[in-house]
Design a protein around this nucleic acid. Structure first.
Lengths: 199, 199
DNA sequence: ACTCTGATGTCAGCGAATGACATCGCTCCC
DNA sequence: GGGAGCGATGTCATTCGCTGACATCAGAGT
């Protein structure tokens, strides 16, 4: 990343004060208050002070505006897998990565709950979430293969990790007294061992 | 199911010779030849000798026409879980169910390959497939809870089983010399035990 | 024949998404 | 300091997925 690029960003954001962020904020607000289906893209754009056409320049579709953070999350998972000690077993590596993701969510519980309430109310959004999770699993499996883990094991470990994340996240969101998500993740990995026959 | 209902079905199908089947066949043909996005619902309906409006009376959306079999599959999984011996461990029960699903696919490999080639080429279809798989996991988890399996274990076992199915199915589809799918599933369950720490 | 019912067709319309082109704000360079 | 250039945004038109309302039609039972 060159200095000019950094300056360029600053310049661009002065001329256009965070259009993407405004769109994301407006979309979430409307999705929460009226529901996803009852909100039109034109309404989101208007609330953000932009036009419908511009919305689709920032987001591939009406759903994607809720999933902007997925890229960062994937980077976190991949880099955690890549940076784990060579001696760690694949499932241990995946466990560390999922736990690191859990820490990030734990820091932003408010937003996560709000966002998830929108997603839970709409099947299309659940579909998008599932494909994002599948992409995370795929990326982690790649990262494991990069470490020399052979293939049925790499895919299985990654998918198992995502399964744990799904279940842990769901419980963490829905429970009245919020447990610590990273700890919940650790417990579920332990339970996974129990369930699969390891004592 | 009463006798009148059965006669009713026969009568209906004489007056309307399998409209749903015609639509499914027409859709698959066009999705394979032109691709999913390049096919309009109007074209499918025309090829089936019907109108666009009728298509949407049989299928909720353009994607759903490819996933009509999911209901049967879910019943198979659930009934297999429900019918397993009480003494079987949860993961064993899930293994039997997934294996039963594998047998069904094994009997219809031709169609599965064709169908999967369409799905693999389109992200929207992958999303739909993932939510169907998630529904299968959810149904199996319910069936396990019905057997008295407690909750983190029930969900984890079901999700792990679906993960195995996903990976096994993908390999089974893409390998040149087709392995036996049920056997592949058994091997992956064994590998899952290895991966999670059970030897 | 008559009616009743369920399947299908017709029509109008909304909203998501995209391509083509115009415009505007800013930076840079002379 | 006044264009030139460029990237972000707006405007316009269009396609297509999808839905509601209503009409129509084929056959079943009377």
């Amino acid at each position: 990343m060159s200095l000019t690029a950094i300056m360029y960003d600053r310049v661009m954001s002065r001329w256009e004060p965070n259009a993407r962020g405004r769109l994301m904020h407006a979309a979430l607000e409307l999705y929460v208050s009226r529901g996803f289906e009852q909100t039109t893209v034109a309404e989101i754009a208007k609330l953000a002070g932009l036009t419908e056409r511009t919305f689709f320049r920032y987001f591939a579709d009406k759903r994607e505006v809720l999933f902007w953070g997925a890229g960062e999350l994937q980077e976190l998972l991949v880099s955690t897998v890549a940076g784990a000690p060579d001696s760690d077993a694949p499932i241990t590596v995946i466990g560390a990565a999922i736990e690191a993701a859990g820490v990030v969510f734990e820091e932003r519980r408010e937003g996560a709950v709000l966002r998830q309430s929108v997603i839970a109310a709409n099947a299309e959004l659940q579909e998008r979430e599932l494909i994002k999770l599948a992409a995370l699993a795929s990326a982690m499996a790649d990262a494991l293969r990069q470490r020399g883990v052979k293939d049925p094991g790499a895919s299985l470990s990654a998918e198992a990790g995502i399964a744990v994340l799904k279940i842990a996240f769901e419980r963490w969101i829905n429970e009245a007294s919020p447990q610590d998500l990273p700890q919940l993740i650790r417990e579920l990995f332990d339970e996974l061992k129990v369930v699969t026959g390891a004592i």
